[in-house]
Design a protein around this nucleic acid. Structure first.
Lengths: 121, 121
DNA sequence: TCGATATTTCAACGATACTGGAAGTATGGA
DNA sequence: TCCATACTTCCAGTATCGTTGAAATATCGA
């Protein structure tokens, strides 16, 4: 990931409203959420939210798809994954303590995912 | 990590100049770099750089220590580690693809660190 | 103590970002 | 075709950010 791309992604996430929206979309998973529902749940006016979604979208962090009158937004994990890897490799290079913590977190996430899959299968 | 803290850290890094400075400090390692040298190498005026360092410092991403007339700045990895873990756990929850990529990156970093240690011992 | 060096703080400005009212566009149903 | 719904775009006001010149502070050596 190039530094300019990283700055764009970081800027998009560096706003409490947008970060909250992004996390809501992460929790919503693959089915995503309609813009209107996000606006309702966050109590943000529709036009303000639209601007926030646009910034996240231009940063490649979310994608949208129209479904009837609604537009469904969902988190796009590729960009987030690239960003995290960039932060770890290019911004913490060679720091074992960071890599160890992060690896442990990755294992916790993988563990939970596996558990969830087992539960839902 | 709380969301406000995350936003502060993300904001501090969401600026090309500041991110470049932070990466330079990461590369400099434990010995750090004097403010003047950072200014020279980045071609940034001293007062502009001072403001940038202040923002990174207030976000807990770097620390400083006076040494004679110089002030030595160095990267503070704890905060960065917390931020990466926050992004992975709270902003990618349950996404195996992210955790897998990140875990692989963590392993690469750990591998390099080990190699470096072997070389320098 | 004085001057040189290293860095920060202050004040002001221009630039950019954020918000929300009003108007515009797209879709589906009557 | 017309209306309601669901969003977006446009625009203007306000707030915040980023940079810089000038002045202040801290340290060291003579």
């Amino acid at each position: 990931m190039e530094i300019k791309t990283a700055v764009t992604s970081l800027s998009a996430l560096a706003h409490e409203g947008r970060l909250t929206v992004f996390r809501a979309l992460v929790r919503a998973g693959q089915s995503g959420m309609a813009a209107g529902r996000i606006a309702d749940e966050s109590g943000t006016p529709a036009n303000t939210l639209s601007a926030q979604l646009n910034i996240l979208s231009q940063a490649g962090l979310i994608t949208s798809e129209r479904q009837g009158r609604s537009i469904i937004y969902s988190a796009c994990f590729d960009q987030m994954s690239d960003l995290i890897v960039f932060l770890m490799e290019d911004c913490c290079a060679g720091e074992a303590c960071v890599a160890t913590s992060v690896e442990a977190a990755a294992n916790r996430v993988l563990c939970c995912t596996t558990e969830n899959k087992e539960l839902t299968q």
